[in-house]
Measured scan of single mutants.
Amino acid sequence: MAAGGDHGSPDSYRSPLASRYASPEMCFVFSDRYKFRTWRQLWLWLAEAEQTLGLPITDEQIQEMKSNLENIDFKMAAEEEKRLRHDVMAHVHTFGHCCPKAAGIIHLGATSCYVGDNTDLIILRNALDLLLPKLARVISRLADFAKERASLPTLGFTHFQPAQLTTVGKRCCLWIQDLCMDLQNLKRVRDDLRFRGVKGTTGTQASFLQLFEGDDHKVEQLDKMVTEKAGFKRAFIITGQTYTRKVDIEVLSVLASLGASVHKICTDIRLLANLKEMEEPFEKQQIGSSAMPYKRNPMRSERCCSLARHLMTLVMDPLQTASVQWFERTLDDSANRRICLAEAFLTADTILNTLQNISEGLVVYPKVIERRIRQELPFMATENIIMAMVKAGGSRQDCHEKIRVLSQQAASVVKQEGGDNDLIERIQVDAYFSPIHSQLDHLLDPSSFTGRASQQVQRFLEEEVYPLLKPYESVMKVKAELCL
């Protein structure tokens, strides 16, 4: 049975990233139509530049190519590739079939990587351009969430054990800070992308030097003109047959890092959902379990974690691919890159769409948070109580021993009897502590235990987050809708 299948058929496997999760716009960027249309555009740009620099290419040939950029006979191309065992030459023939007058000058002087690699770089750039505003929107939604809850005390956790208090907004800023680093890295790697350009079979530009009869300047002009037509500021000066596969490492490393950030955020949300302090959106008709109707599973956060793990592992592909590119190139890269580049971007696209949807509907339960604080705060307040007693004339050592005994009794009630923490009640009825009984409410005010959390939130948002989001103001209103 021949390899390949009808990918629109229910009898043929289709990647869930495309069929179930990723956005239509990201799927289109990695589609065959987008790819092969870009090949034709690159052939047109090459012909236009070659004509401008004096090669015998007519206006009629150029116009014929322009008129057929979208006229792609995919069936013919597939048949040609089956016959020739070469995808680029299959599309040269297919393009030439609908451009008979231009057929002889299509791909003039070029090698397969002229269309293959340059198209990949265009796709990487455009895919990054799709991700950047999506990530900015996630940051914006979380920034709104953090600002609104900047002063809401909550129990902090280290080692997932109760620690000092923080605020809900401050905790959210930990998430935002990681995503801001990801946004900066995505922008950097996007701006650092260079075009492969017009380089020939081993990167020496020998074929173009021959076409222009040894004119170095025209060869350099050709490279520059096509690079500018493709919208790049610069091209690699040095290439082998391909652009260095280190570029793929750079791009997928940034995406993998984004995956790590999203995994951490969504894990926190899942843990908070278990504590009943916070939940992701839950639709009115949504079913959490087929057997347990009360369940409210954090399905979206779980999906993000599941896909983020996949995204983090994909960076190993370009690392290994770059390491086995012998001399000017081997074909070890080809099949692998067809999979890992598309999957990385479709996965990143999915987790950003999902995280935006989550961040637009996060639900906080202040009463649950308050109750958990009441359970733990008495123990945390013991040092403040000791200091207040010393100020009232008591002995630190005597007070410490009193607190120690009462704390152990209260802990026994919590752990052995399943009761509430009654340390404060014990202190309130103990005559030894009568000098500070009137101060206990103040000493137990949760806001006095959150330090500068709310001020940190305000400063972080104003100095770091809002300036970073400013270039994306025009796209901030787009909502994230999930079908599944």
Rank of each mutant, 00 (worst) to 15 (best):
P133H: 14
P293T: 01
R329T: 01
N68D: 11
I358V: 11
D223G: 08
T38S: 08
S359N: 11
F28P: 01
D216K: 06
A110G: 15
E277P: 01
E383V: 03
T382A: 09
T119F: 08
L469M: 11
A102C: 11
K246P: 03
Y466F: 13
Q184E: 14
Y432L: 08
V168S: 05
L108R: 01
A110Q: 01
A388W: 06
F208V: 06
A235E: 13
D32F: 11
S323H: 04
Q210I: 10
K402Y: 08
Q416N: 12
Q221K: 13
I176P: 01
H97I: 15
A146E: 01
V247K: 11
C99M: 05
P366Y: 04
E228C: 11
T58G: 09
E343G: 13
G393E: 07
M292S: 04
A206T: 08
T450Q: 05
D182C: 00
K470T: 14
E48D: 05
S112P: 01
R426A: 10
F433I: 05
Q241W: 02
S323I: 02
R270Q: 06
I249Q: 06
P298S: 09
E328D: 06
F449V: 05
F157A: 11
A388I: 05
L128M: 11
E250C: 12
V475D: 11
E302F: 08
D120A: 07
V219P: 05
L355F: 14
C483S: 15
S447K: 14
N357S: 15
C98H: 12
D11K: 09
A77C: 10
L255T: 11
V475C: 12
C340W: 04
A163H: 00
S395N: 13
E463F: 14
L222H: 01
L193T: 09
E50W: 04
V198I: 15
E220V: 11
C113L: 05
T313C: 11
L272Q: 07
I72E: 10
L135W: 04
T58M: 12
P293Q: 00
I385D: 04
Y21T: 00
A410H: 05
R329E: 00
F28I: 07
T158S: 13
N185W: 09
Q320S: 10
T450M: 06
E360H: 04
S9W: 15
V88L: 10
D333K: 03
R374V: 05
G259V: 01
A344D: 04
M387F: 09
N336E: 03
K479I: 13
H217G: 12
V254L: 12
A273G: 15
R404P: 03
Q286W: 02
R309K: 07
W175Y: 07
S395P: 05
S323A: 11
P56E: 13
Q184A: 14
D11T: 08
M26I: 09
A163M: 00
M387I: 06
D223W: 00
T201F: 01
F232D: 00
I249C: 07
F236S: 09
N68F: 09
L55V: 11
A110K: 03
I385Q: 02
V219Q: 06
V324W: 11
L44Y: 08
Q164A: 11
T239N: 03
D430V: 06
A3V: 12
Q455G: 10
S434D: 11
V414Q: 04
V115F: 00
M225V: 09
S474L: 15
L222Y: 03
L84P: 01
S438P: 13
R270C: 00
C99Q: 03
Q161D: 00
Q416Y: 15
N185H: 11
W39L: 05
F195E: 02
L423M: 14
Q397L: 08
I176Y: 03
A78H: 09
E463R: 11
K470G: 14
F236P: 01
R149I: 03
I373G: 04
G394R: 13
G361F: 08
